[in-house]
Every structure is written in C-alpha cells, then in structure tokens.
Amino acid sequence: MEFDPWSPAFVADPYPAYAELRAGGRAHWYEPSGQWLIPHYQDVNALLRDRRLGRTYLHRFTHEEFGRTAPPPEHDPFHVLNGHGLLDLEAPDHTRIRRLVSKAFTSRTVERLKPTVQRLAGELVGDLLADGGGDLIAKVAEPLPVAVIAEMLGIPAGDRSLLRPWSADIVGMFELNPTEETARRAVRASLDFSAYLRTLIAERRQSPGEDLISALIAAYEEGDRLSEQEMISSCVLLLNAGHEATVNTTGNGWWSLFRHPGQLAALRDAPDVLLSTAVEELMRFDTPLQMFERWVLDDIEVGGTLIPRGSEVALLYGSANRDPARFPDPDRLDLSRADNPHITFGAGIHYCLGAPLARLELAASFGTLLRRAPGLRLEAEPEWNPGYVIRGLRELRVAV
C-alpha cells in the first residue's frame, strides 16, 4: 500500500504503508502535499527537539523571505486565533505564554479535577447502560473531555453544546491541503468562538471564580500578563487539543480491544493491574494524531538527505510509534508493555501541556466502562472519519 492520506483504505489502516516508508529510507519527498515524510522513531523524536525546526517561521522570516505565499486575508480570523496559541508559537513568545498558562494549568489543578472526571464518566456510562448501548463515541468518548474542559474553563452548562462544533470546524484546517469550504467554516468558528470567549473573559474580570479563565487573567510573572488574544487562543487550544486526541484515543482504543479479544479479556480480569499500561499502549498502537508538521528554519540532513530551509517536514507519529527499531514486535497490541516511550504527546518544547489531564480522562473512561459494562461488545464494524492527520472513527456502535 502507498502513502495516500486522502484514501479511505489508507486512513483505515496506514500501518502497512508506514512499514514500506521505513524500509525505503529516512526521508521521502511527497509531492501532493509538498512535504518531506519522516517515518522513523529516532528521527521524529530528534526533530521534535531540534530548534532548527519550528511550528512557525514568522518569528524569523516574512512569508516572502521564506519562499512561501501569505494566506489569503479572508482567512485571517483563523490565523490570528491559531497564531497566538502555544501550538504554533516559537520562543520567545512560546516560552513566555507557556510559563504563564502553566501557572494556571498546574498538576494540582488536574488532581483537583479527579472527582469531577470520575463523576462525569460515571454519569455518561450510566446513560449508556440505561440505553442498552449505542454509539460509544457520541455517548461517552466525546462528551467526557468536552465537559471536563468546559468545567475547567467555567463555561456554563447551557453553552457547552457550542464547543464541539466550533472545535471540529477549526481543527479541519490541520488536515493536508484543506479545501476553501473547510477554511470558510474554520474562519466562521474562529470568529464565533473568539467572540464568545471575549464576553466570558470580560465577565470573569468583573467577577473572578475558581475556573481556569479566572486563573489565566490572574497569571503574571515579573509584571507580564497574557493579552486578551493570548487568553482566547489558549482557551481554544486547550479545548481543541484537550479533547480531539482523547475522543479518538477512546474510540480507536476500544476498536483495537474488540479486535484483540485476548488482550481485552486480560484487561477485564485485572483492570487495576493493567489499566495504566493499557492506556499508554492504546495511545501507541493506534495513534490519534498521525502527523505533526514542522518548518525547516535552517538546513538539516536526515539519513544523508539534505532538507533545505523553507521546506516542511511531516513527522509521522503513527509510523514512529510502530517502529521495530524502538518497539519490539510493534504491530502486536500488548497491554502490559512496560517500556513504552511513545510520542503520542509529542516531545521538546511543544510536549502536550494537557498530557496529565488526558491520562486522567482516559483512565476514568476505560476504567468505568470495564467495571460497569463488563459485557460491552461491538455491534457493527465502524467507519473512519475522512481526516488523516487527526484520525478517528465516525461512530462505534456497542451493546452492553
């Protein structure tokens, strides 16, 4: 099978194509997206930490100097929103904003959420049981992380249904070669979400609470604070990054378990022993974010191939997490795998800030389903969403 991110067959199972890429070399030019594909764990891990690459180039070059065309002005609302968030910033702005956001998003904050996450997971699984099953993604996987992030941000319960559609439209721009219609939807969602958060921030300035928005307003260091746009972009990123991967890890993970009944039986027999390593293995085995892109700010060399400044590299997380050079028997699902340094959360300065929260949500979701729905079984083979970069199932129909 060839690397073809627009092919439904490839999206359903990209791993044979990754094996061919790894066998064929360390860097491959891919004309349809104008990128260098990097499939090996060692290279992906190293390049994530290499300061000669960046999520943006605008801190050093103009579009013209970098040999790139500026996005059309009508896309500005999306790029302003995205460009002020941690994901697409480099030092010194990234360093400053991450430090300030980290003051609000502490491990203590996450630990304090544990009872809330467990309660929400219990309620959602209870509803699934009462209904006799249904779509696990719509009933459990999606609402849990959205509710948790909304609770953290202090978004009123009545407004939470707005969040998932906004997020889905915005992250459509992270796919390869997005269409103009995708861009139009992302711009509209960026405007609407930003306007909503601007109002909420104004309310919290007048009446601070115990929520993350109030903490972001209060966060300062040596007289430095987040600007309003930085706060808005940080909140949107926390929602988008904070649930897209968790949703897909849950759906992809249960689909993997249903296809490996021996492993599922072992997990059901000893959930307290296996759950933590199982969550890590499910993230490695079928990675929710298959690709992460970087701009080459200074010439680099990968496996004897010169990749010049101005290029874009596509770091293939899904391939790296199945690399036999790092993971023995990588195509085998092994829920007890102890040596498991997967790169699902990235590496380097852009390592996922929300990784502890994601692990908490996944442990609560899988743990509650294992405990309260021991007979959970697949009702129908699922279909995949068309997206490749953020890869997940359209639905996962189950019976209890």
Rank of each mutant, 00 (worst) to 15 (best):
F3T: 00
S7E: 07
A12D: 12
P16K: 07
Y18S: 09
Y18K: 09
H28T: 13
Q35I: 13
H40N: 10
R49K: 14
G54A: 02
R55N: 14
E64T: 08
F66P: 09
A70T: 09
A70W: 02
A70Y: 03
P72N: 00
H75Q: 08
V80D: 08
N82C: 07
G83H: 00
R96L: 07
R96M: 09
S102H: 11
A104F: 04
F105P: 00
T109N: 07
V110Q: 05
V110N: 07
R112D: 14
K114H: 15
K114Q: 15
L120K: 11
G122H: 05
E123T: 10
L124K: 05
L124Q: 07
V125G: 07
D127C: 01
L128G: 03
L129H: 05
D131Q: 14
D131Y: 03
G133A: 09
P145G: 05
I149L: 10
I149F: 05
I149M: 11
R164A: 12
S167N: 01
A168W: 08
F174I: 13
F174Q: 13
E175L: 02
E175P: 04
R185K: 13
A186V: 04
D192A: 14
D192R: 11
T199I: 10
L200V: 14
R204E: 02
R205S: 12
L212M: 10
A215S: 13
E221L: 05
G223Y: 02
Q229P: 09
E230M: 10
S234M: 06
L237M: 13
L238N: 08
L239M: 07
L239Y: 03
T246D: 04
N252I: 08
W254K: 11
L257W: 06
F258C: 03
R259A: 03
P261K: 09
P261C: 06
L264P: 02
R268A: 10
D272S: 09
L274H: 12
V279R: 00
F285I: 02
F285M: 02
L289V: 14
L289F: 10
Q290C: 14
M291S: 12
E293I: 06
R294L: 03
R294P: 02
D298Q: 15
V302L: 01
G303C: 00
G303H: 00
A314V: 05
L315R: 00
R322K: 05
P330E: 05
D331E: 13
R332H: 07
D334G: 02
R337G: 07
P356E: 02
R359W: 11
F366P: 14
G367E: 13
T368G: 09
L369S: 13
R372A: 13
G375C: 12
L376Q: 04
P382L: 06
E383G: 15
E383L: 15
W384H: 12
W384D: 08
P386D: 02
G387F: 14
R391Y: 12
L393G: 06
R394A: 15
R394Q: 15
V400N: 08
